[in-house]
Simulated assay, not measured.
Amino acid sequence: MENDLEHDIRKLAYHIWQTAGREFGQTALDFWEMAERMVIELTADSARRASTATASAFENAATWPSALRALYLYRVRELARCMWSASTERRDRSMDYWLAAEKHLRLLAEQTAHNAGVRLGREEDLTKTFETFSPADYLEQIRKTAYQLWETAESQHQSALDFWLAAENRIAESLTRKRTD
């Protein structure tokens, strides 16, 4: 793991040096220290977010019957696997895909529960939602939305990731909006 962190720090330090105009007023050690601080802070923040997200997801799911919990976790794993498979950036990203999958399925569960009129209750409705959920179709919906955003964008030179994240946010907002209607 240290080699991975060192590689990430080296890559970031080089990028910072390049964007600084490759000025020699600062030493290589200055760029290294900046990159090291950034990587350490991002790693610590990621660990905190992962811990918080996992705890909050299981607080709600803890009241579900074991069969429903198992189905939920199966769908989270399946969606995370689809996200990982579709990605070009797989190295050290499994937790990111898992957290993203959990976020999307938690929103779906909350929407289903809201439609049922009970906060994360009505096991039959949740079971039906998880049984019919297709990770491939869900990702295809995000892909189509990202493509539509790209087509209508004024500047199509943005990163594909930006369009993908905007599409994910749009779909998450639509689930949240349905819940508040």
Rank of each mutant, 00 (worst) to 15 (best):
A100I: 00
L149W: 03
Q141F: 08
C82L: 07
E123W: 14
A146D: 05
Q141R: 12
A101W: 03
L99M: 05
S159R: 00
A86P: 04
Y138R: 12
A86M: 12
K128W: 06
R143M: 09
S94L: 15
W98S: 01
F133E: 12
D137R: 00
A113D: 01
S85I: 14
R119E: 15
R143T: 10
D92E: 15
E131K: 13
K144A: 06
R122A: 08
A146Y: 06
G117S: 05
G121F: 05
S87W: 13
Y147T: 04
E123K: 06
P135Q: 01
L126F: 04
Q111F: 07
A153S: 13
T152D: 12
R119K: 13
D125E: 09
A100P: 11
D125Y: 11
Q158P: 05
A101F: 11
L105P: 08
L126M: 02
A109P: 03
S85Q: 13
R119H: 13
T129S: 03
S155H: 06
M83C: 06
W84P: 07
W98N: 01
R90V: 11
E123A: 13
G117H: 05
R119P: 03
L149V: 04
T152I: 10
A153E: 11
N115S: 14
E140R: 08
E124K: 05
S85P: 11
M95W: 02
A136C: 05
G117A: 11
D92N: 15
D96I: 13
P135T: 02
I142C: 10
A86I: 00
T127G: 05
T112I: 08
S134A: 10
T132A: 09
L105F: 07
Q156I: 13
S155N: 12
W98P: 03
G121Y: 07
L126A: 07
W98K: 05
R122F: 01
T129F: 03
A100G: 04
E131W: 12
N115Y: 03
D96H: 13
E89M: 12
L108H: 08
A86W: 01
L107N: 00
R93Y: 09
L126P: 11
F130T: 05
K144Y: 09
L105G: 07
A136N: 12
T112D: 12
L108R: 04
L126T: 06
W84T: 10
A86Y: 08
S134E: 15
Y147D: 10
S159C: 06
L120Y: 00
E131V: 03
Q141C: 15
A100Q: 08
R122D: 15
P135A: 00
W84R: 01
V118W: 13
A136D: 14
E154C: 07
E102W: 12
D137W: 11
Q111E: 07
T145V: 14
T152C: 05
R122Y: 07
L139I: 13
A101R: 00
L99R: 02
L99A: 04
F133D: 10
Y147Q: 09
H104G: 00
Y147A: 03
Q148Y: 00
H157D: 14
A153W: 11
K144S: 04
T132E: 14
V118T: 12
Y147C: 07
L126N: 02
V118M: 10
